[in-house]
Computed example of a mutant assay.
Amino acid sequence: MMQDLRQPDIINEDAKASESQIARIYRMEEILDKSSKAVRDLQEALNRYIALEEEIRELELYYAGRQWQKDFADDEAGKLPRDLKRGVLSEDAVYDFLTLRDEVISKYKELL
Rank of each mutant, 00 (worst) to 15 (best):
S20I: 14
S20Y: 03
S20H: 09
S20R: 12
S20F: 06
Q21A: 12
Q21M: 10
I22N: 01
I22F: 02
A23N: 08
A23D: 08
R24M: 10
R24F: 10
R24Y: 11
R24T: 10
R24A: 08
R24L: 14
R24K: 11
R24C: 00
R24S: 06
I25L: 15
I25R: 11
I25Y: 09
I25A: 13
I25P: 01
Y26W: 12
Y26Q: 13
R27P: 00
R27E: 11
R27F: 09
R27C: 06
R27T: 10
M28F: 14
M28Q: 14
E29P: 02
E30C: 09
E30G: 10
E30K: 09
E30S: 08
I31K: 04
I31Q: 06
I31R: 04
D33P: 00
D33A: 15
D33T: 14
K34C: 07
K34T: 11
S35Y: 01
S35W: 01
S36W: 00
S36G: 15
S36A: 13
S36R: 07
K37E: 13
A38I: 05
A38E: 11
A38V: 03
A38L: 08
V39D: 06
D41A: 05
D41I: 04
L42I: 01
L42N: 01
L42G: 00
L42Y: 14
L42S: 04
Q43N: 15
Q43R: 08
Q43C: 05
Q43D: 13
E44Y: 05
E44P: 00
E44A: 10
E44C: 02
E44F: 03
E44S: 08
A45H: 11
A45Y: 13
A45N: 14
A45K: 13
L46R: 02
L46G: 09
N47C: 01
N47H: 06
N47G: 04
R48P: 01
Y49D: 02
Y49R: 02
Y49H: 03
I50S: 04
I50C: 02
I50L: 03
I50F: 01
I50R: 04
A51W: 02
A51K: 10
A51M: 10
A51C: 06
L52A: 13
L52K: 14
E53Y: 06
I56S: 03
I56R: 03
I56H: 03
R57P: 06
R57V: 11
E58V: 10
E60M: 14
E60H: 13
E60L: 05
L61Y: 09
Y62A: 03
Y62M: 05
Y62P: 04
Y63V: 09
Y63S: 14
Y63D: 15
A64I: 04
A64Q: 15
G65T: 03
G65R: 02
R66K: 14
R66G: 08
R66Y: 10
Q67V: 12
W68V: 11
W68A: 11
W68Y: 15
Q69T: 08
K70M: 13
K70P: 04
K70G: 03
D71R: 03
D71C: 00
D71K: 01
D71W: 00
F72S: 00
F72G: 01
F72L: 04
F72W: 11
A73S: 14
A73E: 15
A73M: 07
A73Y: 03
D74C: 08
D74P: 00
D75A: 05
E76S: 08
E76C: 07
A77N: 10
A77C: 05
